[in-house]
Design a protein around this nucleic acid. Structure first.
Length: 588
RNA sequence: GCGCCUGUGGUGAAAUGGAUAUCACAGCGGUCUUCGGAACCGUUAUUCUGGGUUCGAGUCCUGGCAGGCGCACCA
């Protein structure tokens, strides 16, 4: 019998007692107490059912406690009641001996469950615009998305990580024109595609400018925006490029794929550095026309209405209680939602998905609801299959401490790579051990942890100097704890499965270990990995506190137990960090 | 105007309706620098506001205040 079953049996026993008193299907939950001084776990049923049974909570608690003593649950050491009606349970030393053995034998699988087994989830996240380098906003989206990918896998689901590459339209045309204009080696060279086709060496490459490709691309894009402001005719030229691109003009397409190559190169570099990936990327140019047929279908079925000017409008007001929106422009061209309808159908088709998630900023909240409702009307799944996983804005700290929205155009962005590099320098500066250089992994761990430890809906005002903590409640603290444990384990001789159970040292620590699987389930329920980050801080802190007050390796017969407990902590930290996408280091 | 989100010590955050609201930073005061001091221990200080539901409310409902976002042919 494993720990989970033991706890379930305790729930069942209490449930049975309540049934005996006449409660139909009682809801019994075994919880973590607010303080381990009360007990190892707590149950609140006496208060919950006091009224229904017409008994004071304390009396009911007393009754349940007495009845539990009759049960066959040998791993209960003590059951006590406390005002106003809590039932506090303490487990035996054997219970914890078994828990530690269980963790050590499960290893990498400790905490995983199969609650979502057989389900297929598709998570869309980090959909980048290939005209700008990725900044802090993309980083949060990416970390939330990748965290969910790993979390849902740990809960047994099959997960597809995907994204849309918004690789066409006016923004990309701006990038193309901006490149032709800004990156000429000689300002007398004509800004023309023909000229560029003729002699590409007349334009700079990122290498020649000593720039990273994504930064190179951003400059071109920003430059185009500035030129449009100065000269109205530029916008006309750029719009003409979009028309030519749609018409399939070969030269325009050549320039298009050329500049995109730079953009992709830059993004790939950054994402590799983060250890993020997609299983599938949808390129907008491949599907942007496909939504129109769904709109036609909806018109035939009478789900949508055509306005006088030819645009198509939804009908959501009455059935869904949300505002209507345009699905097709009066000129017959598509909008984001038009494409998203087609894409949602494609996702379901290609992956036979059960659940689809969109990790997107909160400003898209209404648009998401509209998309889900329209899909349901069209018979593409049901609203309940879809979720918008929103997250709070990430802004930079203003001079007066306020929130400053990032803008590529205004140049007020913090790029992912720059952030990691800054943190890396900070870590190097305070490094105490110099024989290994793990600053890259530490910096990435610190950055990820700092963005994931808060609830994803929290808005973040980012201060580059302070927001990524490298001490205190930080990723480094957890990584350090892990390395410290490995070091201790290497010093001890007695790392084995045969340790005695009659030891009470490290009490809180082993109690915390017991709750890890529940944290994984709660994170799944809330679709947020911050519970895991918070848990790891708790666990690390409990370990360091224990470590600070007790010598682990002393050659005594207690050593084997202590080292087994320490090892179980290491296993749990590693598993938790893995979901956060943070690599553990043997040495820090 | 309507809708959605947010409001917790000086700062940043946590808290499946549960016990005395937890943690980090900053401040103040400490720790045989023996198993890794990137650590440990102590200390000061917090739920925007009025009402309600509940045995119990930071959490749920409702009125206000403050901030953010969204509301049809942009992407």
């Amino acid at each position: 019998m494993n720990t989970e079953q033991k706890i379930q049996n305790l729930e069942a026993a209490i449930s049975h007692i309540l049934s005996g008193l006449g409660i139909q299907k009682p809801l019994v939950v075994i919880d973590k107490p607010s303080d381990f001084e009360f007990g190892d776990v707590v149950c609140n049923v006496a208060m919950r059912y006091s009224k229904e049974l017409g008994k004071p909570p304390m009396e009911l608690a007393e009754f349940i406690t007495e009845a539990l003593k009759e049960s066959e649950l040998s791993y209960l050491e003590k059951t006590e009641i406390a005002t106003p009606g809590f039932i506090n349970v303490t487990f035996s030393a054997e219970f914890y001996r078994d828990l530690i053995k269980e963790i050590l034998s499960l290893g990498n699988n400790y905490g995983k469950n199969d609650d979502l087994a057989g389900q297929k989830w598709v998570i869309e996240h980090t959909s980048p615009n290939p005209n700008k380098a990725m900044h802090l906003g993309h980083l949060r989206n990416n970390l939330v998305g990748m965290g969910l990918v790993r979390l849902l896998k740990a809960n047994g689901a099959e997960v597809i990580s995907d994204a849309i590459d918004n690789n066409r339209g006016i923004a990309i045309a701006k990038l193309m024109w901006g490149y032709l204009s800004l990156m000429r080696k000689d300002q007398s060279t004509e800004i023309s595609i023909d000229k560029w086709i003729e002699d590409k060496t007349a334009w700079y490459t990122p290498e020649e400018k000593s720039m990273l490709p994504d930064v190179f691309v951003t400059e071109c894009y920003v430059h185009a925006g500035e030129e449009i402001k100065k000269d109205q005719s530029v916008e006309g030229i750029i719009r003409e490029m979009v028309v030519q691109w749609e018409a399939g003009d070969k030269k325009v397409h050549e320039l298009w794929s050329f500049v995109l190559t730079y953009a992709y190169e830059g993004m790939e570099r950054t994402l590799n550095r983060l250890g993020s990936y997609w299983d599938n990327v949808w390129h907008e140019h491949e599907h942007y026309q496909e939504g129109k047929s769904y709109v036609e279908l909806g018109l035939e079925k009478g789900i949508f209405k055509k306005l006088e000017d030819g645009a198509v409008l939804t009908d959501l007001e009455e059935k869904y209680g949300i505002p209507d929106t345009i699905l097709l422009k009066k000129d017959g061209t598509s909008l984001y939602i038009t494409q998203d309808i087609a894409l949602t159908a494609k996702k379901r088709d290609k992956f036979s998905a059960d659940r689809l998630l969109w990790v997107i900023g909160p400003e898209q909240s209404l648009a998401m609801k509209q998309l889900f409702a329209v899909c349901e009307q069209l018979g593409i799944g049901e609203v309940s299959d879809y979720s918008h996983v929103s997250y709070g804005y990430v802004g930079l700290k203003d001079d007066d401490g306020g929130f400053k929205k990032m803008s590529s155009r205004a140049g007020t962005v913090l790029l992912i790579d720059d952030l990691i590099d800054t943190v890396k320098e900070k870590i190097k500066a305070q490094a105490k051990v110099s024989d290994v250089d793990n600053s890259e992994q530490l910096a990435i761990g610190a950055v990820k942890f700092s963005l994931l430890k808060a609830d994803r809906t929290q808005e973040i005002v980012f201060d580059p100097d302070q927001s990524v903590e490298i001490s205190g409640a930080s990723g480094i603290y957890v990584m350090y704890t892990y390395a410290r444990i490995l070091s201790v384990l290497s010093k001890g001789e007695n790392v084995s499965d045969s340790f005695s159970a009659d030891l009470t040292t490290g009490g809180d620590l082993r109690k915390i270990l017991m709750f890890y699987p529940e944290i994984i389930k709660r994170s799944q329920k809330d679709l947020s990995v911050h519970h895991i980050a918070q848990y790891l801080l708790d666990l690390s802190s409990a370990f360091n506190s224990w470590y600070g007050n007790e010598t682990l390796v002393d050659g005594s017969e207690k050593e084997a137990y202590r080292l087994a407990l320490a090892k179980a902590v290491a296993v749990t930290i590693k598993n938790g960090l893995e979901i956060l996408g943070i690599e553990t280091l043997d040495r820090v």
